[in-house]
Simulated scan of single mutants.
Amino acid sequence: MPFTLATWNINSVRLREEIVLRLMREQAPDVLCLQECKSPVDKIPLEGFQALGYTHMVARGQKGYNGVAILSKIPMEDVSGYDYAELGHARHVAGKLANGVTIHNFYVPAGGDKPDRTINEKFGQKLDYLRDMQAGFLAEKPERAILVGDLNIAPREDDVWDHKKLLKVVSHTPIEVEALAAVQAAGDWVDVTRADIPEGKLYSWWSYRSPDWDTADKGRRLDHVWATPDIAGLASGSRVVRDVRGWEKPSDHAPVFATFDV
């Protein structure tokens, strides 16, 4: 049976509960993966989500920062939540659906402002996190798996509004792009979004600093949907629901969707 999945950095699930409910009502993904929930797991507002059919959840949370959750209409079991780079952050959770597909939901560290780990500890943490992700997938090759999340890297030239201007800006620097490529290669992951939409500018994030974000369109594709080769060919319908970025009190990210016929 096909199922549709969405990934969305919500920037506080409690503050933006109403637009999560709106997305559930209007787009109705079978599985919704959220990042930057900024909430302990027991404070995630489940009542409204459950009323719309999202009766299954796996999550890792902490007060005020980070946090990842997978909300699902399909029965799901909690299979892991790794603390890559031993940061003590809630940045990964994985759930196995009743159809046998495992979903990994990641919130990779943003990396701060300066792309130099000698002066910016956060950038070093980001590189270490990616290194540990790579090592994890090399040690245990994923099968029948989907990886989603805010990976905080826009890897391709057409994943940013201006490749040359952003080469020294955190999220598009060569060292980050190379590190993400190494993670992807370690798990033989297929970039499902770009397999479906191979050409053209494509963004999922627009800065809060730009009040005319839609007109200026200085975006980056920081949010990703990957799949292992055994199911990647069963994916279709990839899209970024850009209009969500313009909803009332929005996240600075728009949700990314894909459908899997598994």
Rank of each mutant, 00 (worst) to 15 (best):
P2H: 14
T4R: 13
L5I: 06
T7C: 12
I10H: 02
V13F: 01
L15S: 12
R16F: 01
E18H: 08
E18I: 02
R22C: 02
M24P: 02
R25P: 02
P29R: 11
P29A: 03
V31M: 15
V31D: 13
Q35N: 05
Q35L: 14
Q35Y: 13
Q35P: 13
Q35F: 14
S39G: 08
S39I: 03
P40A: 04
V41E: 06
L46H: 02
Q50E: 11
L52M: 05
H56T: 11
H56V: 01
G67S: 09
A69H: 02
I70Q: 07
K73E: 01
P75K: 04
M76C: 11
S80A: 14
S80P: 00
Y84L: 06
Y84H: 10
Y84N: 11
L87Q: 08
L87E: 15
A90N: 03
V93W: 01
G95P: 01
K96L: 12
L97R: 08
L97A: 12
A98Q: 13
N99C: 06
T102R: 06
I103F: 11
I103K: 05
I103D: 14
I103Q: 05
I103Y: 12
I103R: 08
N105L: 15
Y107K: 11
Y107P: 04
V108R: 00
P109Y: 03
P109H: 04
G111E: 00
K114H: 14
D116C: 04
T118P: 09
K122E: 07
K126A: 03
L127Q: 03
L130F: 00
Q134M: 05
R144V: 02
R144M: 09
R144D: 15
R144S: 12
A145M: 08
L147F: 12
G149F: 01
D150W: 04
N152S: 14
N152F: 01
P155C: 09
R156M: 05
R156L: 14
D158L: 00
D158T: 15
V160N: 11
V160A: 06
W161I: 00
D162L: 07
H163W: 09
K164Q: 08
S171V: 01
H172D: 08
P174F: 07
I175N: 12
V177A: 13
E178S: 05
A181T: 04
A181L: 09
D188F: 10
W189A: 04
A195F: 00
P198F: 08
E199I: 14
E199G: 03
E199L: 07
G200K: 04
G200P: 09
G200Q: 15
Y208G: 08
Y208I: 05
R209F: 14
D212E: 11
D214H: 06
T215F: 10
T215Q: 15
K218Y: 00
K218V: 04
R221T: 06
D223I: 09
V225G: 00
V225Q: 07
P229W: 08
A232T: 06
G233A: 07
A235F: 05
S236R: 15
S236E: 12
G237D: 08
S238H: 01
V240I: 07
P250K: 13
P250G: 10
A254I: 05
V256Q: 04
F257T: 02
F257K: 01
D261R: 12
